[in-house]
Design a protein around this nucleic acid. Structure first.
Lengths: 217, 217
DNA sequence: TAGATTGTTAATCGATTAACAATC
DNA sequence: TAGATTGTTAATCGATTAACAATC
């Protein structure tokens, strides 16, 4: 694999999409695909796909294209799917509970170790087989288990404090579902946020633009 | 307001962040802010902020900066928060239910009209006050009510078919939470996707990079 | 071999940053 | 008035697209 000097975030954001599309192609029984065909189905140019893959070295064959299973495998490797990452969930409210029950952690290479909450009614129970511990045990748990990522779904008022605790305890990434822009407490802790609100407002903007055009007619 | 020729998606994606930060500033009692100070707290340059706002016309005062409440108001207007948009939810599984119960639709300018499902155990009930109807009634409901956006949380196997139905029925935007890249059935229907998996895999990539560096030491 | 398609460099395009006159 | 900060144009930087030799 090519020495990846510095891969832009634009490329990084496209990698999971490639992985997803290749998985779908694989399930459909497609064995081989060209950058042109893949680009067409994903709304990208062939050039862009080849340029993206070039960041990590060539995975194709000239005159042939890419083997779907091989390329999927390689991109999965780049994304770290086979590194055995681990994860805990902070907060078992409606959203935390739903994600624990629904999300295919293992398909994304993550092992969900435990959930944490302060509500005595859920502490000690299990959600979809995952044990719920008291948040007081958080630091001890992280000290005793390698925890790569913490999914944060606590109330917004507790978000920053909990983020600080997680960073101090030594998690490497925080997957932030609170509608709060977590300040990176430490440089080496990576915060990845899923802001539902930002997504809906972007959609709101786009449909509002259409309305604007219609009003002019 | 300046005639917005063509605003780039990069700018559009930042608008909700501005709105969120300005709301926080407003709650903290901050009345006035300069592009420099706002940029510092958001991790952007002052130039970028002024350039972004310049897309829509100037909302500041030279030598003074921006009035927080006024700028928030203006950006909210641009995002369409006061347009009285409406929304329905397709699918009341764990995730759909959690979003109905948790998400502050009204704070984002959306009125949640109804939810739809095929499960006879939930059809006819209410979730957080929102009536759950049978999916068979979808087209009739949309014909009888203006529905701007449909939130999609159906099983992945049903996603594309349901997307097509929604587009045919006349919604203007689909807020897609399925882990499926919805093909835009119609050009004028805007699909905005929240792919949890893409987000976690991007985070997985980033922490894997750190590991790579550590291994070299 | 001829045709197809990649890997890779060069050209273009767009977004970010810098600069500064305007003005509060 | 002097100082601060915007609005707006110009310069720079980075990402996307085009081109084409290499090669399967």
């Amino acid at each position: 694999m090519k020495r990846n000097t510095k891969v832009s975030t634009a490329v990084i954001r496209r990698l999971p999409r490639y992985y997803r599309h290749l998985s779908e192609l694989q399930e459909s029984g497609v064995v081989r695909i060209s950058s042109g065909a893949l680009g067409k189905s994903m709304g990208l140019t062939a050039s862009q796909i080849r340029q993206d893959l070039f960041c990590f070295g060539g995975f194709g064959q000239q005159g042939y294209g890419y083997k779907v299973d091989l390329l999927k495998e390689e991109i999965g490797e780049i994304l770290g799917i086979s590194r055995g990452h681990t994860l805990i969930v902070l907060g078992t409210g409606n959203l935390g509970r739903a994600i624990i029950q629904n999300f295919r952690f293992s398909a994304n290479g993550f092992d969900l170790l435990a959930a944490f909450d302060i509500d005595p009614r859920v502490v000690g129970t299990r959600i979809a087989g995952v044990p719920v511990r008291h948040t007081d045990e958080l630091e001890a748990f992280i000290a005793g288990n390698r925890v790569d990522v913490a999914l944060l779904t606590v109330p917004i008022a507790a978000a920053q404090r909990m983020g600080d605790r997680l960073a101090a305890a030594g998690v490497r990434g925080i997957w932030n579902f609170t509608n709060y822009e977590l300040a990176c407490a430490r440089q080496d802790v990576i915060v990845e946020s899923v802001h539902f609100s930002d997504s809906l407002l972007a959609l709101s903007y786009m449909i509002s633009q259409q309305e604007g055009v219609e009003e002019e007619l």
